[in-house]
Amino acid sequence: MSNDLTARVRARITPENAALLDVRARAMGKTKSRVINDALSACFTFEHDDARDARILEKLDMMIRHNHRHSRDLNLHSETFALFLHFYFTMAPQISAADTDARAARGVGLMNQFIDQLGVKMRSGGKTFKQALSDVLVSDQDFFRLDEIQLLEKLQKKKVSAPKKKETANV
């Protein structure tokens, strides 16, 4: 493509676009003809379409990855719940016919309590599983104070660096 601007085109544009063209040409240090020519070149070479398509593909890729993570998490939750139900139904004691009404009433009360607790957890962010992991996973800091750990580390270093005494054999 040639850099010579030899063809003349007459076109009409809105006053707003004319003002923007003036500002852009001055800011870039180019003539209005050069700015219009560059804009037409970008339009005909699909430069804008390619940039738009790249942004769309990037967004789709991100959405697909999010969808994959959500599907994995949903499968994990479903399998966990199914395993819990299997365990519960295996271990739940059989109840006699005389106790069914009392157990049913107690079950309704417990179910309502469960739903209330679930609602509270979900309103506060629903991070029960992560909280459960932090409750289960422990480290030395959970059992010792920091100064005690430092003292233990010093004692271990002394133990490693101390020379072993040679035992003399009785002959």
Score class of each variant (00 low, 15 high):
residue 3 N to E: 10
residue 7 A to N: 08
residue 9 V to L: 13
residue 9 V to E: 07
residue 15 P to V: 03
residue 16 E to Q: 03
residue 19 A to D: 04
residue 22 D to G: 02
residue 24 R to E: 00
residue 26 R to K: 02
residue 28 M to R: 10
residue 28 M to P: 03
residue 29 G to S: 00
residue 29 G to E: 00
residue 30 K to W: 02
residue 32 K to V: 01
residue 38 D to H: 02
residue 40 L to I: 09
residue 42 A to I: 04
residue 46 F to S: 14
residue 46 F to L: 15
residue 47 E to P: 02
residue 48 H to F: 11
residue 49 D to F: 10
residue 50 D to A: 09
residue 52 R to I: 15
residue 52 R to W: 05
residue 53 D to C: 07
residue 55 R to P: 05
residue 58 E to G: 12
residue 62 M to K: 13
residue 63 M to S: 11
residue 69 R to L: 13
residue 70 H to E: 14
residue 71 S to K: 12
residue 73 D to E: 15
residue 75 N to F: 13
residue 77 H to A: 11
residue 79 E to F: 04
residue 80 T to V: 01
residue 81 F to C: 08
residue 81 F to V: 10
residue 82 A to Q: 09
residue 89 F to W: 05
residue 92 A to I: 01
residue 92 A to M: 03
residue 93 P to G: 01
residue 102 A to Q: 00
residue 104 A to E: 01
residue 104 A to R: 06
residue 107 G to Y: 02
residue 110 L to V: 03
residue 113 Q to G: 04
residue 115 I to E: 08
residue 120 V to F: 09
residue 121 K to F: 07
residue 122 M to L: 13
residue 123 R to A: 08
residue 124 S to D: 13
residue 135 D to E: 10
residue 135 D to F: 10
residue 138 V to E: 02
residue 141 Q to C: 10
residue 144 F to H: 08
residue 144 F to L: 05
residue 154 K to P: 03
residue 160 V to M: 12
residue 168 T to F: 15
